[in-house]
Nucleic acid binder design. Structure first.
Lengths: 176, 176
DNA sequence: GGGCGGTTATGACGATCGTCATAGTCGTCG
DNA sequence: CGACGACTATGACGATCGTCATAACCGCCC
């Protein structure tokens, strides 16, 4: 059910996804939404965002552990490019969708903020291990996260992964 | 009316903004929506996005004409930081909101794509004038646009302009 | 086997959505 | 002055939204 919510949030955004869509997509029983999520849509959106954020954080962890930052960014760009192309530019980052959620689901917004902070901290830690000063590491980590999130947005709108790839090239050039 | 739509799209996103909200906010007569916008919400969202995109393109033009790229990015960051703080992190980029619009308003999405492309071209032109090769200029322009859009998203979610400022510092460092 | 708590089925509620039809107002031009 | 066009007021329509109440189901423990 949470996974279905994530899929739909990615494709349509939080506001445009109804609980009926979620249960229909997941095959879950409609009557039990408020049994598992007494807080209604707000709670479901928050937990889905938290789950998605954690999942991407694990991806970040794997990447920075297995390669230097520049190569990690490269693989990250490949990953998102594949997501965009496979979905015909319908699917974007679920956390970005949550970040732009309307007021009645602002729990998802704070979950998105937590996720972004977590990602930045992960990257900043890896950069510090490679000799960057704390200030540099924090700024560069913020740039990487923001640039990739923004590139996903721009690439979706333009229906080409060119912006994402360009951003990847520039980030790698700078991190190398 | 278009301006009211832009304001509301910025705060709530396209999907969560109803036509009734728009007319109420603008004071415009409700009965005349389909007189001025026969295409309904789709047309209104598309035109509003186009209008907003052009407005920001003019801002870009002014900035790159009056300063070198690094200083222009600096002023751009100041501008958006002011927008975020003044609105208590409610207002973001209207074109980003359009980029994540749901399927039934995908006209706004293509308008967002056009706007992004326009901004990138403007910046790339300025960078080429300063001696960058076309490839470099295009990649860097894409990075600037994506990074700032992403930073707005992240800053909204985290309710602090720190990510935006960090991204600004890194971009300036790189462009200098 | 009998009860019982956790889960599901079903459908209703008020609200709100996009859309549109119809009837009115109002300025302008002949 | 009268008619005609552009614009507005009002309210209805079907659909869909989030939410919840109520009744049925089902597996497990005594």
């Amino acid at each position: 059910m949470l996974d279905s919510a994530i899929v739909l949030f990615r494709e349509r955004g939080v506001a445009a996804t109804s609980l009926r869509d979620v249960v229909a997509h997941s095959g879950a029983p409609r009557g039990s939404i408020y049994h598992h999520f007494p807080g209604g849509k707000q709670e479901l959106a928050s937990e889905a965002t938290r789950r998605a954020g954690d999942s991407i954080a694990r991806l970040f962890t794997r990447l920075v552990a297995s390669a230097d930052p520049a190569a990690a960014v490269d693989r990250l760009v490949d990953h998102w490019s594949g997501v965009l192309l496979d979905s015909d530019f319908a699917s974007t980052c679920p956390v970005a969708a949550a970040a732009l959620a309307p007021d009645d689901t602002d729990g998802a917004r704070v979950a998105a903020g937590v996720a972004f902070e977590q990602w930045e901290d992960l990257l900043a830690g890896a950069l510090r291990e490679r000799g960057a000063t704390p200030g540099e590491a924090a700024d560069r980590a913020a740039l990487v996260v923001s640039a990739i999130e923004g590139a996903l947005l721009v690439s979706r709108a333009r229906r080409t992964d060119a912006p994402l790839r360009a951003v990847g090239r520039e980030l790698v050039r700078q991190l190398a």
